[in-house]
Simulated scan of single mutants.
Amino acid sequence: MKVQSQFSARPAMDGDGVNIRRVADFNHTKFDPFLMMDEIKSDDEQDFIGGFPPHPHRGIETFTYIRKGGF
């Protein structure tokens, strides 16, 4: 497999103040079928304790990959 492009994640905030790093492709289809990729990577509980309150797409088209820990 050949790497075609590389993208850098940028610090962002989502949900109820969850600190994430996001790579987004809202205007192109380079990530098709994905719209964006988020990473939550922190040992500080305050970075993600607010969670993601109910919203229209919660749990419908979300793919979660956990390398360590859980939710």
Score class of each variant (00 low, 15 high):
N19K: 12
D38C: 01
Y65T: 08
G69A: 09
I40M: 15
P53A: 11
K41H: 11
H55N: 13
G59H: 09
N27M: 08
K68P: 02
S5D: 01
D32S: 05
V23Y: 06
L35T: 11
E61C: 10
K2N: 08
V18Y: 03
K68L: 11
D43L: 00
D47K: 03
F71V: 12
V3K: 07
Q6V: 14
I49Y: 09
G50P: 02
H28C: 03
A9N: 01
K68G: 09
F63V: 13
F63S: 01
D25M: 02
M37T: 11
R21P: 00
V18G: 00
A9T: 11
G15P: 01
D32V: 02
A12P: 01
S42T: 14
Q4H: 04
R22Q: 14
V3I: 14
A24K: 06
V3N: 06
A24H: 02
A12I: 00
G50L: 09
N19A: 12
S8T: 14
D14I: 05
I20Q: 05
F48G: 02
R21A: 12
F26E: 12
M36W: 08
I49T: 14
T29E: 15
R21V: 06
G70A: 12
F52W: 15
V3P: 04
F26A: 09
D32A: 08
P56I: 13
L35S: 11
D16F: 06
Q4C: 05
H28Q: 10
E39Y: 05
G51S: 08
Y65E: 00
V18R: 00
V18P: 02
A12G: 08
F63I: 12
A9F: 15
R67N: 07
G17L: 02
F52D: 04
N19M: 09
M36A: 11
A9Y: 09
F63P: 00
N27L: 08
H55S: 12
F48A: 05
G51N: 03
F7Q: 06
S42N: 03
K30M: 03
I49P: 05
G50E: 03
T29C: 01
R22A: 13
G70S: 14
F63C: 08
S8Q: 14
F7W: 09
Q6Y: 02
K41Q: 12
M13S: 10
N19T: 10
M37C: 10
F31N: 02
R21E: 13
Y65H: 10
D38W: 00
D25N: 03
S5R: 09
H28R: 13
F48R: 03
R67F: 15
Q46M: 11
P54L: 07
D47M: 06
